[in-house]
């Protein structure tokens, strides 16, 4: 049900601009909406991050994933159990660039007949989410072509690598296919794996459908309708340079559908779980070093009024008995 509603919502986001542009509202979808979306995204994203960053981290609670730094002759895991900023940096690099925690999903398998223990792993989630995220990044970089003048060399390199297989005309980008694979796998898990389906909510389906919609409209534009790229760039550059105007050449309605879906993503982003992009950098169990036994970690709301039951009160309670048992006391009876 949740999946169905999400699907309908995304479908609406495609149909509305398509029809709207036909009715002559292209400026609304081509100019006004992108500005609104970008403003909401930037303000919303910043506010969320600031809101998190402002809340205190009272305790140093990293989840340690390896041997602590201890005696010099004991082999230490500096990336899984960092003690300083440098170690945390490496841990986060591995986490953010390689999804290390998901990769950890290893398991030992026992071969049926035989004494050997083999190792295998449950890494499909890791693999497909990695594929999805990297393709998404690559596609974003490629799209910089529409927003920058002159086009930076890095964009060219990305395009070259992405189309290295030289299939079709216009040349097919591998990332377009791979991101579909990644997204479809992530969606299939939610639909077919009962365990994951049980925990899935509407806000889990919606971004998946939204991204699928973006990819599909993008593919449609590039490979099927083969839209007028010059006109599109005229529009996007006019937006970026803050001199918005509609291009003279007509643009296919699918561009507006694509653009609207992207805007929807931008608007939705700060209010959703997609904020994990920023949240990971503020997750205390990952970004804190395991240093609280080496140095002082300060809790801003530490309440000095909370005091232990004092020794004096304790001795007052038990003085007779302590003396009788031969235990030293501070005050004689």
């Amino acid at each position: 049900m949740a999946a169905f509603y999400s699907f309908l919502a995304v479908l609406a986001l495609i149909v509305i601009p398509w029809l709207g542009v036909g009715m002559g509202m292209s400026a609304l979808f081509g100019i006004a909406l992108p500005y609104i979306a970008i403003i909401i995204f930037m303000v919303g994203f910043t506010m969320r991050i600031v809101d998190w960053a402002k809340s205190p981290v009272p305790f140093c609670i990293p989840t340690t994933g390896g041997q602590q730094k201890s005696l010099p002759w004991i082999k230490w895991s500096p990336w899984d159990n960092p003690v300083d900023k440098k170690g945390v940096f490496m841990r986060m690099v591995l986490e953010v660039l390689c999804f290390r925690s998901l990769f950890r999903n290893t398991s030992v398998k026992l071969q049926q007949d035989g004494p050997k223990v083999g190792y295998s792993s449950e890494k499909s989630l890791w693999l497909f989410s990695l594929i999805f995220h990297y393709c998404f990044l690559l596609i974003l970089v490629r799209h910089l072509r529409f927003f920058l003048m002159p086009i930076p060399g890095a964009v060219g390199i990305a395009e070259f690598l992405d189309s290295i297989l030289q299939i079709g005309l216009p040349v097919m980008y591998q990332s377009d296919a791979l991101i579909m694979v990644g997204l479809l796998f992530l969606l299939a898990r939610r639909v077919f794996d009962g365990k994951v389906r049980y925990i899935t909510l509407m806000q889990d389906y919606f971004p998946l459908f939204l991204l699928l919609g973006i990819v599909l409209t993008g593919v449609w534009m590039r490979y099927v309708v083969k839209v007028d790229v010059i006109a599109v760039k005229e529009l996007t550059m006019s937006i970026v340079t803050l001199r918005p105007h509609m291009p003279t050449a007509p643009i296919d309605p699918s561009v507006y559908a694509h653009l609207t879906l992207v805007c929807a993503l931008f608007i939705y982003f700060p209010f959703s779980k997609l904020m994990h992009m920023g949240g990971i950098f503020l997750s205390p169990t990952r970004v804190l070093p395991n240093m609280s036994r080496r140095a002082q970690w300060v809790n801003p709301w530490n309440d000095p009024a909370v005091k232990a039951h004092s020794y004096e009160a304790y001795e007052d309670d038990f003085r007779e008995k302590m003396i009788e048992a031969g235990l030293p006391v501070d005050k004689k009876a």
Partner: peptide, 16 residues
């Protein structure tokens, strides 16, 4: 329960 059955059916690692 359904979600439980899926888990117990799927993985054949004796320790996990």
């Amino acid at each position: 329960a359904e979600s439980t059955a899926v888990l117990w059916k799927k993985r054949d690692d004796p320790f996990a």
